[in-house]
Write a protein that binds this DNA or RNA. Structure first.
Lengths: 332, 332
DNA sequence: GTGAAAGCGCTAACAC
DNA sequence: GTGTTAGCGCTTTCAC
């Protein structure tokens, strides 16, 4: 093994306690002793072994973030915000990817159980409310981006229902009456609530709901294509489409163009997430923007506060969204 | 603190050694004792504290991966391959993001120095060869995707020079003689070698090199735009462009279209990386594909072998690339 | 202001 | 096959 606190103590001619005090910035150490210690540290290239420290202190100052996928720049932004907030409090963020698979998630969550990390944030999870609630009894966890019905745990998301309502309303305001939705058949709350918001917008504007205008499948890129193909084969195809993700919107746009139609004119398309792609795409994609960095920061602030205090905040926080109209709805 | 090995031992009526043996699958334990222990573990919901275990064993079975950015699906793919290889050997991968900033990278590398992880992979680093070499004396590290001139450490990349040569040659084979390159002014070896490969292709095909056809700036999306604007303002604009990244290529494509030109016809554009975007984009982007998953897997295999053995493999491995021609070069 | 020593949870020699 | 025990590197109480 490498050089330990003992070696430093010996080299500096002080006790390990004094070295430890210097290491931890304790006030009770004389300037002369501190200098001896710091010189020894320098000389020996000493770096404290955190396994020892963490074991002793029963804390690691590390927070685990489990993301369902890492190709999604949405999560990258959120994690970036998390990192900023964490470092402000002396914490580190480490990220793993579950690929939406429970087995991976469970394996990664072991870092929480085996005390390798102090807390965990789940950006979408395979666990159900009951499991989450049981975990939350013993560990500090938070949900971000994706809530779970019945989970009594710190949660931070946008108001998906309202966001989708606003998105559909924006399309209605542009004169559309035949509006399709590309949704998912997953049991993800975000998706369900976005569908609800879409329906409420139609209802409140006295637009009859048409089941043919509702397409449900997985989040996969491919399904944006299938949805548009299905929609456009209808006798009365929609003139606008709301997709619950920008990836689906991108696929929808691509398919629309391949059909020889003009996006934003023949068919308006509006997505969700405002990922990097959305602004790069041709045409640029209208979308609902989530305050990613802020959500990440807020989640970590709250989680660290839960970790360090003994009164747990298990509230459900909803952050403000924003509708961004670009070329794919004929704007800009 | 939670329940410890002692609690389990007491509950099972055995010693901690026996519990430890069961935990670690040691053969020297009777079936009856094992059952007692397993029951106690179940009952108490015991999960071993890895801080204790890791401290004792001087290993964590965790490998740190530092990526310069997390919005890049290229890295996501590589890390996915790493995860697959790691779990095969009972290791976990944790990822952090440096945002290309040395201070972050240094802070994250502390996990290596303080023994929180057994090894580290750098997907592009701010460190210079000298620093890397010094680190490599005491720690197991690997470079993936981006090599460093003079670094004597396990490195896995594609053959950037040859890949760029092949890319430019593909354009030449399509009849282009006026070929621009959108490169970077960073000191990243990948970028430098891609430029070299481009130059060699022109030379070997007796095409004179034109300095006006070489645009250098940062990797930022914006610069793909600027490059095309500069190229197209020339008296003799290029008919093809090779960009050292797909992001730059995407920007170049977008700008070309905005200029009223047809990509693949008026201007052929070929990128590098084959990220998810490249196939989604309109038009689809011709590119050089790196074997991301394989590179990730291979890097981890080698790194774990370095960690567990005492003869270090510090070789530089070059993985095979592939040229993929799509719509942006007028193919498909 | 400083040192001695206990102990965090675990593994692995060693003894039986 | 099982238990006792030392000790991994560190922090922190307690004495002085």
């Amino acid at each position: 093994m490498g050089v330990t606190i003992k070696d430093v103590a010996r080299a500096a001619g002080v006790s390990v306690a004094t070295v430890s005090r210097v290491l931890n910035g304790s006030a009770n150490v004389s300037a002369s002793a501190a200098e001896l210690v710091n010189n020894a540290i320098e000389e020996l290239h000493y770096s404290p072994n955190f396994l020892g420290r963490n074991l002793r202190k029963c804390e690691t100052n590390v927070i685990l973030v489990i993301q369902p996928t890492s190709v999604h720049s949405l999560y990258a932004e959120i994690i970036s915000g998390m990192q900023e907030a964490a470092s402000k409090h002396g914490y580190d963020i480490i990220a793993t990817t579950s690929y939406g698979m429970g087995e991976h998630e469970t394996r990664q969550m072991k870092m929480l159980f085996n005390r390798t990390v102090d807390g965990a944030v789940l950006l979408g999870t395979q666990y159900d409310a009951q499991t989450i609630n049981k975990l939350a009894e013993n560990y500090d966890i938070a949900l971000c981006c994706e809530g779970i019905e019945g989970a009594n745990v710190l949660t931070v998301t946008v108001n998906d229902e309202q966001a989708a309502y606003d998105a559909a309303s924006a399309l209605i305001r542009k004169g559309h009456k035949k509006i399709g939705i590309i949704s998912t058949n997953s049991d993800a709350m975000s998706s369900i609530y976005r569908e609800k918001g879409y329906l409420r917008a139609l209802e409140e504007h006295n637009i009859p709901i048409c089941q043919d205008y509702i397409y449900r499948d997985s989040y996969d890129y491919e399904n944006g294509k299938k949805a548009v193909q299905k929609f456009m084969a209808l006798k009365e195809p929609p003139t606008a489409v709301f997709a619950v993700s920008d990836i689906l919107a991108a696929a929808a746009i691509k398919t629309t163009i391949e059909m020889g139609l003009t996006v934003g004119k023949d068919l308006a398309i509006l997505g969700f997430d405002n990922i990097a792609l959305s602004e790069m795409f041709i045409p640029t994609i209208s979308t609902v923007s989530q305050p990613c960095r802020e959500m990440g920061m807020f989640t970590i602030e709250k989680l660290i506060s839960n970790i360090t205090s003994n009164e747990k905040d298990n509230k459900y926080y909803k952050m403000p969204h924003e509708i961004i109209l670009r070329q794919s709805t004929g704007d800009q």
